[in-house]
Design a protein around this nucleic acid. Structure first.
Length: 484
RNA sequence: GGGCCCGUAGCUCAGCUAGGUAGAGCAUCUGGCUUUUAACCAGGUGGCCGGGGGUUCGAAUCCCCCCGGGCCCGCCA
């Protein structure tokens, strides 16, 4: 397979540089100011000499003058080359510098006749020679596969993508700031687990050589974080990757980032407040506003978020979940094309509810008080033991968060795990596993607590306006490219 | 898992319906140009038309299989 022509051309240029004593990959260049500093505080720098560096994204020669765009950290400044200033260095520049190279420049900050803030070059140095032509700047990269496989190209050429990932980093920073200021501490619990749990999902299986046993990549942090409540920490959280061996679409990536938060002596109502305040804090600090645009619709997060009981909403739409017969439920499941490996009334009602309403929750809504069987890890509802104190937060039609009053009764927990195991024997691959180590922890005593998990990728989608989860994941999973 | 669509130069795309020597713009290379910013002008290089197999005198084009990607549905309690 022949090498790309641009690569061959640049290699030749590289050899030429080396032959005249220029290192295309030197060890150091002194930067007195970042490009962003100069752009943001131009009045401080106008007329002064600076040395700065970035990737050269454009070059426009006009005989004995030239202009280029130097870019770093999402900021751009023009460089201005004059033969009458640079002398021989002018043609050196033309000989060895290409679009795409990282270069360092030294010169005075000036304005050109057209008013463009520029650095009038006195000297320059190659920092890193680029051996490929970058894709066309104006058209950018639109091929989705190239964008995901070579995300750095996507980021170089599509500034909005560069900003999405900067914002994503700010989102996790602000989550930490918010929680740390309230006395939470962050933990790192095991990713490799002998027994997986905390959610209903198919796991990834791996093998630990030293132990000669199969282990699982965690599907949730929950059962280990709760052990920290047993240990006596009142406020704990973890931000990390979970892994679920399921299908991939615009809302699901097999590895995704979750935060789980637990606070002792609280309940699910408190956790709804915490969740709402946390997301409002993040939106305001990261976006500078509580207004977001979802599906072209302006949504104001500052209004108090609605809280609805699942059964109330069903009742208002003609389904009395307390009284409806199982045959009628099965009829509705068929109508909404919901398949279940094993019919369980509470789970059926939950699925029905999601099928009927999920997509309609554009503005933030907390759905609360789920049927008992919808999760084995939640405390029974204090007023109705057929329900649990669970909530889910929906924004823009997708589930963003899931929280409970955490079950801390070891006897009930053991019973609920056994029910899950029965469901597994009936063919539900996503039923949870019995975790006796966790039961023993509960027997030792766990304070009552509120907990919530928030999908960071999905929250990032909401706050950046991304339409697919792949747009907020640096390297979304793709099949390996076949060798040609 | 089901349906629909896509893959042609470094990038963005045309050509395919109706088979007849692979095209454009940009990038790159050469030359010109002392205030441009998608710079401009002139000329040149560049492709196993995702891969394999058919049909045909002849395939980017028609047929089959495979690979990769996208969207929708299912699944994700």
């Amino acid at each position: 397979m022949p090498e790309r022509k641009d690569y061959v051309d640049r290699l030749r240029k590289l050899e030429h540089m080396r032959s005249v004593g220029i290192d295309p990959y030197p060890h150091y260049f002194h930067v007195s100011q970042d490009i962003s500093d100069i752009v943001k505080r131009e009045n401080d720098f106008l007329g002064k000499e600076v040395s700065t560096a970035g990737r050269l994204m454009a070059l426009r020669y006009h005989g004995k003058v030239g202009f280029g765009d130097l870019v770093m950290d999402g900021y751009k400044i023009q460089i201005f080359l004059r033969y009458d200033v640079l002398g021989d260095k002018y043609s050196n520049f033309k000989d060895i510098v290409d679009k795409g190279d990282f270069i360092g420049v030294k010169g005075d900050v000036v304005r050109t006749e057209k008013g463009e803030l520029s650095i009038l070059l006195k000297d320059f140095a190659i920092i890193s020679k680029s051996l490929y032509d970058l894709p066309h700047q104006w058209f950018g990269i639109e091929d989705v596969e190239t964008r995901y496989r070579q995300r750095y190209l996507d980021m170089i050429l599509n500034p909005e993508i560069f900003e999405i990932f900067r914002k994503r980093s700010y989102i996790t920073r602000e989550i930490r700031n918010f929680l740390n200021s309230k006395g939470f501490i962050e933990f790192e619990t095991p990713i490799l687990q002998p027994v997986y749990g905390g959610a209903n999902a198919k796991p990834f299986i791996t093998y630990v050589n030293a132990i000669e046993r199969n282990y699982y990549l965690r599907i949730s942090d929950e059962l280990y974080l709760k052990r920290l409540l047993v240990a006596g920490y009142p406020r704990v959280y973890e931000i990390g990757k979970d892994f679920r061996n399921e299908d991939i679409d615009s809302r699901h990536n097999p590895e995704f980032t979750m935060i789980e938060i637990y606070e002792a002596f609280k309940d699910y109502k408190y956790m709804m407040d915490l969740t709402e305040n946390l997301i409002k804090h993040v939106a305001e600090t990261v976006n500078g506003t509580l207004k977001i645009s979802l599906n072209g619709r302006e949504v104001d997060l500052s209004k108090p978020w609605k809280r609805v009981r699942m059964l109330d909403l069903l009742y208002e739409n003609g389904i009395d979940a307390k009284r409806i017969g199982d045959d009628d439920i099965k009829e509705l499941l068929k109508k909404y094309e919901i398949k279940m490996p094993a019919y369980v009334r509470g789970i059926a009602i939950t699925k029905l509810f999601e099928a009927m309403f999920e997509e309609s929750f554009i503005e933030p809504v907390f759905v609360m008080d789920y049927p008992r069987e919808s999760t084995p890890l939640c405390k029974l509802h204090r007023d109705d033991p057929s329900l649990v104190e669970r909530f889910e937060l929906y924004i823009n039609g997708i589930e963003i968060a899931n929280g409970y009053s955490e079950l801390n009764d070891p006897l009930l927990q053991e019973r609920f795990f056994r029910e899950e195991m029965e469901r597994r024997t009936l063919g539900d691959e996503e039923a949870q596993q019995m975790d006796m180590d966790f039961i023993e922890a509960l027997r030792t005593g766990m304070p009552n607590a509120g907990g919530v998990g928030i999908g960071i990728d999905r929250l990032s989608m909401i706050l950046t306006g991304a339409k697919s989860i792949k747009e907020v994941i640096y390297y979304p999973i793709l099949a390996p490219k076949q060798e040609k």
